[in-house]
Design a binder for these strands. Sequence first.
DNA 1: TGTTAAGTACACCGACCTGTGTGCATAACA
DNA 2: TGTTATGCACACAGGTCGGTGTACTTAACA
Lengths: 206, 206
Amino acid sequence: MAAMTELEKGPTGRRRGRGARERILSASQHLFREQGINQTGMDQLCAAAQVSKRTAYQHFAGKDELIAEYLQQVDPTVMSSIFDSQELTAREKLLAVFDMPPTNPMCPYISAAVELHDPDHPAALYAKEYKETVTAKLANAAREAGAANPEELGEQLALLLDGAAARTRVVNSNAFPTAGTIAVMLIDSAIAAGPSNDNHRETVSR
Amino acid sequence: MAAMTELEKGPTGRRRGRGARERILSASQHLFREQGINQTGMDQLCAAAQVSKRTAYQHFAGKDELIAEYLQQVDPTVMSSIFDSQELTAREKLLAVFDMPPTNPMCPYISAAVELHDPDHPAALYAKEYKETVTAKLANAAREAGAANPEELGEQLALLLDGAAARTRVVNSNAFPTAGTIAVMLIDSAIAAGPSNDNHRETVSR
DNA sequence: TGTTAAGTACACCGACCTGTGTGCATAACA
DNA sequence: TGTTATGCACACAGGTCGGTGTACTTAACA
């Protein structure tokens, strides 16, 4: 509602104008997540961003392009607060991803892929790319933690994440704790099986 | 394409008319799954079902009602071919659910919940109900298999299922084998921990 | 054969959607 | 201060959507 961020008057500093683009993307974060992409019209979005429709279409070639940029702005660093943390051990990183939510309605990447329903849509391609990046980061942390098969563990944990997100949406209870429980089992089992002999942490493998 | 079922001329036997309702629901199974619910208009659906639009709206109060009935017809028995099987042990039942797909694009229940985006939509309520039924059946089979905590194992396996479905959609590779691998671990671990002492099969708990 | 329920053909409505065209205001920078 | 990119207000085009009204044919059953 009245919590329309603080850039209402625009940052006044970007380039020349009054930062309409930022407001549009900011509004899309709210509306696309809370109402869905298809349920949010450009008129409503422009009104919420306090931007004229004409301006919106000067910044974005069309709604599809806006959707793609919206999705890219959801988490541009791909959970770097977890994976680039200096304070967490690799094992703690693997578990931290299950403590993030309850984000709003659901993982925006799955939502976008389902709502757009076109695997070739730029946003759908980015969603896939994002998921693959997360999986790779999980695999890296798994390797660092000394897992027997880091790629496999990464894929498994990624699946748990997606399962928790999807299930939380359909059924109406937080499924992340359950996913976390399974994750602990998988991680401990994989680490117990070990990579062979040596270190279990501080093996920065890349 | 030309594979428009076999009831083109209608079953000729139902009640009086020519079975338009069945054709509509049959067409919705194809179109809603392959194109999505929002992307499928009533005009297209009626054309595919070879039914006049007027007739469609005499059978269904509106698109929402049609969606709900479509979803209820996807799997009315809730995987009874697995759970009511006489030939499968309880443990085999728990694993069999991961061998079903690759169904078309994705679990229709998750799709519906995401696409409709209204938790109170009749179809969304049914999706939730369906998922809860599956979870309960998994828990039953888990108890029958002698799992330490059947409810927990049921919830865990259900989460794996949803994760595999969602992930298969976003990333573009079949995630069910990975889910199955995790399932084996969880099941064996839960059974090893045992309910206490007695039987590991043929305990028809309901 | 006649009655009646079921289905048909097709034009049409209002709402909403993405996207434009145009003329005007204004903030930023030189 | 003047220039120019940036943004605004607003009407409107063209399309699609869900849903309806009307007058008709046809299939089922008595």
